[in-house]
Design a protein around this nucleic acid. Structure first.
Lengths: 104, 104
DNA sequence: TGAATATATGTCATATTCGACATATATTTA
DNA sequence: TAAATATATGTCGAATATGACATATATTCA
């Protein structure tokens, strides 16, 4: 695994350093992680574009600052469901989400 | 709420008949549910196109027949994470998923 | 038709994800 | 720089999603 790639996955919880790392991730695993990281990145961008702090945004979606931080960090413990609900709450359309998901 | 719409949501668990029903769902809630139902529908189509029974497919993704049935029924208890992992296992690309998600 | 196969539905114990909290660290601003 | 504000990280009990199982119902096909 290349260093840059490894770095990307060091977003905690992504079994880097485990067997999966040595053997490599399957294309499906890669795609899944990539989608989550894209959603994470997009979430941070949209939140910032709206000049909301993590605390303000957390209130908006009835969550907590720490969870927002984890969402944006792309932590493995965060579900795609939560990421999508969050993006929708920021005004993203299904089309927007589709773009985020399919962007390499 | 129109009858046809209600019918669609009677996929169990979608708080039809609760306050949310009377008050109507927010656009974000609607979009979220719609996305899940699209993924469900797509899952069934792809599985059938591959001539896999629910049992065969369940084995493929290390799940159970009953959960596959619930995925395809669009049950509220099924996560988007699982739907996406399942579609990826069937060979869907990120582009494919994007299409599914943005399709009204 | 009736047996075989496929799918639906309900329940449960376990696993995962959740919001919340404490607190560390980084960034902004006065 | 120091205080204020924002973000990161670790942990926890509660909430939710999970696979598995039993069993009902539907569909296929001989």
């Amino acid at each position: 695994m290349k260093h840059a790639k490894r770095k990307k996955l060091e977003a905690k919880g992504w079994k880097v350093g485990t067997a999966a790392d040595f053997l490599g991730l399957s294309p499906e695993e890669e795609a899944f992680i990539e989608m989550k990281l894209s959603l994470s990145k997009s979430l941070r961008e949209m939140r910032r574009r709206k000049h909301l702090s993590q605390i303000e945004f957390a209130k908006l979606i009835k969550s907590s600052q720490s969870r927002v931080a984890k969402m944006e960090a792309g932590e493995a413990s965060v579900s795609i469901d939560l990421l999508i609900k969050s993006l929708l709450a920021l005004g993203a359309s299904q089309k927007d989400l589709a773009k985020v998901i399919s962007t390499k």
